[in-house]
């Protein structure tokens, strides 16, 4: 449509076309309105409000008068050791969950793509974790990790309090995170695998390529767009994970699993520093966008 408009057509037609175009765009807006209203009211509005809060000393209290403090919250955030340790935990968590999730899901997808017996059943079973809400998953794994009654300890014959141990708690929740996110990654990868033309495999088979070469030279490059998309989405999801960890450890023991979002929650709802928590949320959003932007930009450039 834009192409037709930019070409200067004959004067009389131009007038008609502009009128038609403006009517069209008006219709378009009108049709979009029902969808736009909730987005503006419930997403854009609160978002802007949250960004605004980040530059004030707002507190969740009745007696407090909120004033504008500029970048004070940001300065405080940069000097806050607790924030940095929480940020480090967040990075360790989201990178390791995303990478492990991807590797496990790729394996699962390759397996489910084989001509196995009961493939249909296996595919359905693989998606089951996806159907569970994070809170239910959290409760279930809490039972698995339970120091006395948990099946993990009885399987291993150990007596470890997994979720309360300073060095084991983070790895323990990473395992849960991987388990939780694996199905959707696997399903997306499986879809990608099925989109690879068979002829490519047949062609390299003629050349005498083995399994490994086929995987390395055909499957991976063909899957690349899907891999980029799903890992970047996974990264965002994992970085913003809250419910699962809140149920499992509440950020304990001693803050060893306090992901950035849990930290923000505590600041806002336990210590009632709403302004500071908003700045934290804003900083996290910027970090995620920056990492994602860099990653996608590099991938795009390579693809070109």
């Amino acid at each position: 449509m834009t192409a037709t408009v930019t070409k200067p057509p004959a004067p009389p037609a131009r007038h008609v076309r502009r009128a038609r175009r403006s009517r069209r765009s008006r219709e378009m807006w009108l049709l979009m309105l029902p969808a736009l209203v909730p987005v503006v009211l419930f997403s854009v509005g609160p978002l802007l409000y949250g960004i605004g809060l980040a530059f004030t000393d707002a507190r969740n209290t009745r007696a407090h008068e909120t004033t504008f403090v500029g970048l004070d919250n940001f300065v405080q955030l940069m000097g806050d050791d607790d924030f940095w340790s929480s940020f480090r935990i967040g990075v360790v968590w989201s990178v390791s969950v995303t990478v492990l999730q991807f590797l496990a899901a790729l394996g699962l997808a390759l397996l489910l793509n084989q001509n196995l017996r009961f493939r249909g059943v296996a595919r359905v079973l693989a998606v089951v974790p996806w159907a569970m809400p994070p809170v239910v998953i959290g409760l279930m794994w809490k039972l698995v990790y339970h120091p006395d009654a948990g099946i993990l300890n009885s399987l291993l014959g150990t007596d470890i309090n997994w979720l309360a141990d300073f060095s084991l708690a983070l790895p323990a929740i990473i395992v849960v995170g991987v388990w939780t996110g694996m199905p959707q990654t696997a399903v997306v990868l499986l879809a990608g695998l099925q989109g690879i033309p068979r002829e490519l495999y047949e062609a390299v088979e003629v050349d005498g390529a083995g399994r490994w070469r086929r995987f390395w030279n055909i499957t991976l490059p063909q899957l690349k767009p899907v891999i980029v998309a799903i890992t970047s989405l996974d990264f965002v999801w994992n970085f913003n994970q809250f419910g699962l960890v809140y149920v499992l450890t509440q950020g304990g023991p001693g803050g060893r699993t306090r992901l950035p979002m849990l930290f923000a929650y505590e600041e806002a709802f336990r210590y009632r520093y709403a302004g500071y928590a908003s700045m934290l949320g804003l900083a996290m959003a910027i970090v995620v966008l920056a990492v994602l932007g860099l990653y996608l930009w590099r991938q795009m450039r390579e693809a070109r």
Partner: peptide
């Protein structure tokens, strides 16, 4: 006190009692 308890005292006492 609540913030002192959850941010400082809980981890410190847990680490101390765990002989760390």
């Amino acid at each position: 006190f609540d913030e002192w308890k959850s941010k400082v005292a809980t981890p410190v006492l847990q680490e101390y009692y765990a002989n760390k």
